[in-house]
Design a protein around this nucleic acid. Structure first.
Length: 583
RNA sequence: GGCGCCGUAGCCAAGUGGCUAAGGCAGCGGAUUGCAAAUCCGCCAUCGGCGGUUCGAAUCCGCCCGGCGCCUCCA
């Protein structure tokens, strides 16, 4: 087994301190993350936890641990029942539909490290067994078909959130008359008319909210496991109650480290997504603010949910947006914020293009070193005296790891990646790495080492695994048309007709294609929110051809038509001008 | 009311006792370029306010101002 990195520290909600991370069993880590109740489409707030825990798992695996990560799916719940009634569909069908929505959103955000996705309904036997054990041990009681946890029987109740059972004596909710104490919470709820149910020793019913996590975590990891995670909003009552259930049942700690991610807010005035501000009665002014927010959210997340936002922005931008902030902080959400943050990604994307120009192969084809120990060894290779760039690369790598070691500070770690790219750009500039006749093998090797480190570290964040823009069928056509136009522009530049050259570049820019002149030919990239860049490009080509025909330059005119045809664009000359279609 | 969190440049965001307060976005000046784009170089904050502890505080303590979360089966 690879040597373990021993210097990771995590912030533990239970102790309110950062602690040295040391799993229960050496080398093995179990992570339990509270997943969604699948009653409607995911919103972006549901992605915060999965993205950071996906990153945490990657980092722990890289650091030498054998990690199992579980995300539970709550597929039985009052809100699911309500949805089921509203839509006239079985609860299980809605749950399945929304689970698929959730999973596909996770997939586009690059969350692919989940090992187990247990459903509450698939663990009914374990849940009932757990409740029976609690009753047996005197921590729970059946009452009129319901079963409640007896909060006052647990002397440690409230230790996670620093409150006492006595202080939690509210009105007790709808089932108050069946409870011994108002703070008691349901482990099992008797089924009402028309509600889905499971058979149990207490009659037909369904589990309470908290018990599934106690039961399923025990199935997966045993009585004490390493990391329990969730959103900060789950600390009370959900996690407090999980602790009460599990620790009363087992007489030992449930989880060693409790990690909670911060919540997402729509804007500074309106509170978190789906939070109190979304539910309570509001003043007119608050309602106005909320309406704006709702518009923003509904426009941003679309009628179909998060999927539309992801389609517009791309999963990588959203992942980057989330990781740029330390996971315990509140994130203010807005599509504009995502777009602005994502501008920073361009720096990396341009570097990848540069890497390809230098090396003749894709940055994404570099196999990232997947083990910290192995990577450390690669870093120990003897360096030539005065090889300051190699030393700088190593320094950025070490800084990155130190920041990740400190409670997974992805935001701070990211700064090292930016620094690394700047370093490599500068190095490439200074040593003419893009000019095969001027560069040295040795310098190319240094540059490559930097790229490898960038690949290694960004893989830990789940970034840059593949090219950002998936090639579509249209892209090939666009590419050929752009190449044609750049050739025409190159000819204009060749005869110093800069007016014509600039006119072409401006026309390309208007279509969303940015031109970059460099030795050996012009480069280009699409920089437009609008996917429709092809039509204006073809129009530009047609205009060029019309000009050639006006000059009676028929060879050029025919060349343009033939090249467009080769690209798949067929021209048809008509009295009022040329029209075109895709072949 | 109880339990917590936050307030760092125009915006976002690291840093939580001691070198010149990371990084990103935006902006400005310069190199480069036919002009651009990209890239590179440089500039751009004394840390909500007041007081205290300390040789020394953005970082600890107190008060105040402002924002937010949980206490309601919301990630």
């Amino acid at each position: 087994m690879a040597p373990l990195a021993k210097n990771i520290r995590v912030y533990n909600t239970l102790t309110k301190h950062k602690e040295h991370f040391e799993p229960v069993q050496p080398g093995k880590v179990g992570i339990y993350l509270c997943g969604p109740t699948v009653y409607k489409e995911s919103h972006i707030g549901h992605m915060v936890g999965p993205v950071i825990f996906d990153t945490i798992k990657r980092y722990l695996v890289y650091s030498g641990y054998n990690v199992t990560w579980l995300v539970n799916i709550t597929d039985v719940d009052d809100k699911l029942i309500a949805q089921s009634r509203e839509r006239g569909l079985p609860m299980a069908q809605i749950a399945e539909e929304m689970t698929q929505d959730y999973l596909s959103n996770l997939a586009t955000l690059g969350v692919d490290q989940i090992d187990q996705l247990p459903r509450a309904t698939e663990n009914m036997g374990e849940i009932i067994l757990f409740i029976e054990q609690l009753i047996e041990k005197g921590f729970a009681y059946a009452s009129g078909g319901d079963v409640f946890f007896d909060v006052l029987s647990d002397p440690e109740y409230g230790k996670l959130t620093n409150r006492s059972a006595e202080s939690q004596q509210g009105e007790g909710g709808g089932a108050a008359d069946k409870k011994h104490s108002a703070a008691d919470f349901a482990l099992w709820k008797a089924a009402k008319e028309d509600e889905p149910f499971w058979e149990s020793p207490w009659g037909k019913g369904r589990p309470g909210w908290h018990i599934e996590c106690s039961a399923m975590s025990r199935v997966a990891f045993g009585e004490t496991f390493d990391i329990h995670g969730g959103g900060l909003d789950l600390v009370f009552p959900h996690h407090e109650n999980e602790i009460a259930q599990s620790e009363c049942c087992h007489g030992k700690p449930m989880a060693k480290y409790w990690l909670h991610n911060g919540l997402m807010r729509a804007d500074s005035a309106s509170g978190k997504l789906g939070g109190r501000a979304d539910r309570e009665e509001q003043t007119e002014e608050q309602a106005a603010v909320q309406a704006t927010v709702d518009n923003k959210i509904s426009r941003s997340t679309g009628g179909g949910g998060l999927a539309d936002l992801v389609a517009r922005q791309g999963g990588e931008k959203i992942r980057f947006f989330l990781l740029r902030t330390q996971y315990r902080s509140t994130i203010v959400f807005g599509e504009a914020q995502i777009a602005e943050a994502a501008t920073g990604l361009e720096t990396f994307y341009r570097f990848f293009e540069r890497h390809e120009r230098v090396q003749g192969r894709s940055f994404h084809d570099i196999q990232p070193i997947a083990s910290r120990a192995e990577a450390n060894a690669a870093d120990q290779k003897p360096k030539a005296a005065g090889d300051t760039t190699r030393a700088e690369i190593t320094r950025h790598r070490e800084n990155f790891l130190a920041k990740m070691d400190d409670d997974f500070n992805t935001g701070a770690a990211l700064s090292e990646l930016f620094d690394l790219v700047h370093l490599l750009n500068k190095f490439a500039d200074q040593h003419n790495l893009e000019d095969a006749s001027l560069r040295s093998e040795q310098n190319v090797a240094v540059f490559q080492r930097g790229a490898e480190v960038l690949r290694e570290l960004s893989a830990l964040l789940g970034l840059f695994g593949q090219p950002a823009q998936a090639a579509s069928a249209n892209d090939a056509v666009i590419g050929k048309v752009v190449e044609l136009l750049l050739e025409l522009r190159g000819q204009a530049r060749g005869r110093k007709d800069f007016a014509a050259a600039d006119q072409l570049r401006d026309a390309l820019a208007a279509a969303g294609v940015v031109v970059e002149d460099r030795q050996g030919g012009a480069g280009w990239r699409i920089e437009s929110d609008d996917a429709e860049v092809l039509p204006p490009l073809v129009e530009v080509a047609i205009a060029q051809r019309a000009a050639a025909r006006a000059n009676k330059d028929y060879p050029l005119s025919d060349l343009i038509r033939d090249r467009l045809a080769a690209a798949g664009v067929v021209l048809e000359d008509r009295p009022e001008g040329a029209t075109w279609r895709l072949e």
